[in-house]
């Protein structure tokens, strides 16, 4: 079980959190004309890297904040956690 540092609450066990997917994906702006490809890239197409991955987690059984986790998908090492609008 991972040990995740919520940027708001501190270090907690994984069972307080829910995984929230790739954090590098940006939602296209509203009312903007975009191609099918751009939309598909946003909705469906994800990389599945072995190694470093920036991802969202949601502290559902805690402060209910979404935040970013920089994690190694092979070793589960967590390098850093950030608030949603902080950059690596």
């Amino acid at each position: 079980m991972l040990f995740i540092k919520c940027p708001y609450c501190g270090i907690r066990s994984q069972n307080e959190f829910a995984y929230g997917g790739d954090a590098t994906v940006k939602r296209p702006e509203l009312n903007k004309e975009i191609s099918d490809k751009e939309w598909d890239d946003f909705v469906y197409n994800r990389k599945s890297p072995r190694g470093k991955h920036l991802e969202f987690w949601h502290h559902i059984s805690g402060c209910r904040q979404w935040f970013k986790v920089h994690r190694d998908t092979a070793t589960h090492e967590i390098f850093k956690t950030l608030k949603p609008h902080e950059e690596l």
Partner: peptide, 11 residues
């Protein structure tokens, strides 16, 4: 609720 929080906090 999680869905709404996602859009408010991130998007």
């Amino acid at each position: 609720l999680s869905h709404l929080e996602y859009y408010l906090q991130i998007v």
